[in-house]
Amino acid sequence: MHLNLFIAFVVLLILIFEILKFDRMPSSLFKILSCFIICLFVSPSSISQAQKKPKNIILLIGDGMGLSEISSSLYFNEKPSNFLRFNTVGLSMTSSSKELITDSAAGATAFASGIKTYNGAVGVDENMQAVETIVEYISKKGIATGLVATSSIVHATPAAFYAHQESRRMYEEIAAELVTSDIDFFAGGGLQFFTHREDGQNLLPQLEKNNFVVHTDVLPKKISEKKQAILLAPDGMPKMSENRGNFLTNATMLAIGQLSKNKEGFFLMVEGSQIDWGGHANDADYLINELIDFDKTIGAVLDFAERNGETLVIVTADHETGGFSLSAEEGNYNKILGSFSTNGHTATMVPVFAQGPSEELFGGIYQNTNIFTLLKQLSEKK
């Protein structure tokens, strides 16, 4: 017998003995017993079992985003940080299969396929064998899927959700896989890997043949019912400091508008890719500008989720980059200076934020592969 049921049984016996002392049940005891019975049948475990699963899941990944990066949204953002809107927070352990410190490819493969693999691997295990991605799994169930990134769309993190390559650097092979993948909407950079390839192929006509509408100049304001391929830069998108504008937020909301039309629900992965690049460059301004842009996108997604009522929002990182810290500037405790300890990745755990149906599952401390396990579990409709 579970401990909580045992305790409930003992309490119930005590109440019965107390009742037997009287010819008729006192009103006070009647109220206590009534409340007890209600609480017994509406216990936390019962509520958890009856919890409605989300129809839609939006996973936002701040590449290279550790706790100090997140904290910078409190100190350098003109508006209140959207991270403050979350009630459920967990911690993810990020090591890859062979290294204590992961890279983005192995980190994203853990999210997308639920396995630990070697650094540089995209959608393959340690033996370089393809593993099923969450996109491939849920597409069989009729769930729509999308990807948005400020990097190239064939970069490590987005690639791990649809491709299977032994090296993250195999950009042209990854692009070819995207053309025939189950993805319904994608937006980011990486046009050169579709049009200026070493094999001389132009993959844009193949995208159109596979029912994609291709956009290569500007982010459209309205889109058709067809699949959408949006490639707006040769490689990565411009930095925020280079006038990228509201691409990340607008592309994300465009994706949500398109994918929401699917009656079976949708899964959308959104990456704030260049937070990581600011960390690698040890450029605090670059990092903070990208983080605030990511924070703004989180706010727009949370607003949608609150209106929708059927959407789970998860925000996390694949790893931390730069050993970023927020320290006092020249000993002045009223001035904060962003500083770094490395130009590479670190082994620190990263936060996981969740809001929406079944958010409580994301509290605690766990391996990054647990994200996939929960995504798969929640995609199983009742």
Results as ranks from 00 to 15, higher is better:
82 N>M: 09
34 S>N: 10
273 S>E: 02
74 L>M: 08
203 L>N: 00
74 L>T: 12
340 F>S: 02
246 N>I: 13
301 V>A: 09
265 G>F: 03
179 V>N: 06
363 G>W: 00
310 E>A: 14
39 C>G: 10
122 V>W: 00
149 A>S: 14
322 G>V: 03
11 V>M: 07
331 G>L: 10
192 Q>L: 02
170 M>V: 04
193 F>R: 01
56 N>K: 11
307 R>K: 14
365 I>T: 14
103 D>Q: 03
319 H>K: 10
173 E>W: 01
361 L>D: 01
129 Q>W: 02
14 I>A: 13
302 L>R: 11
192 Q>D: 08
119 N>G: 15
188 G>F: 02
357 P>K: 07
238 P>E: 13
246 N>K: 15
359 E>W: 03
187 A>G: 03
40 L>K: 06
8 A>F: 07
70 I>M: 15
220 P>N: 05
70 I>K: 11
107 G>D: 14
110 A>I: 09
185 F>W: 02
173 E>A: 13
370 N>H: 05
183 I>N: 01
277 W>E: 09
363 G>P: 01
261 K>C: 05
218 V>W: 00
356 G>H: 02
162 Y>Q: 05
293 D>E: 04
84 L>Y: 11
116 K>R: 15
346 T>C: 02
154 V>E: 02
365 I>E: 05
161 F>S: 03
175 A>R: 06
149 A>C: 04
226 K>W: 00
304 F>A: 06
309 G>Q: 11
45 S>D: 11
294 F>Q: 00
97 S>K: 15
317 A>E: 05
261 K>R: 14
115 I>D: 09
136 E>L: 10
162 Y>K: 06
302 L>G: 09
217 D>S: 08
310 E>T: 15
27 S>M: 13
42 V>Q: 09
181 S>K: 01
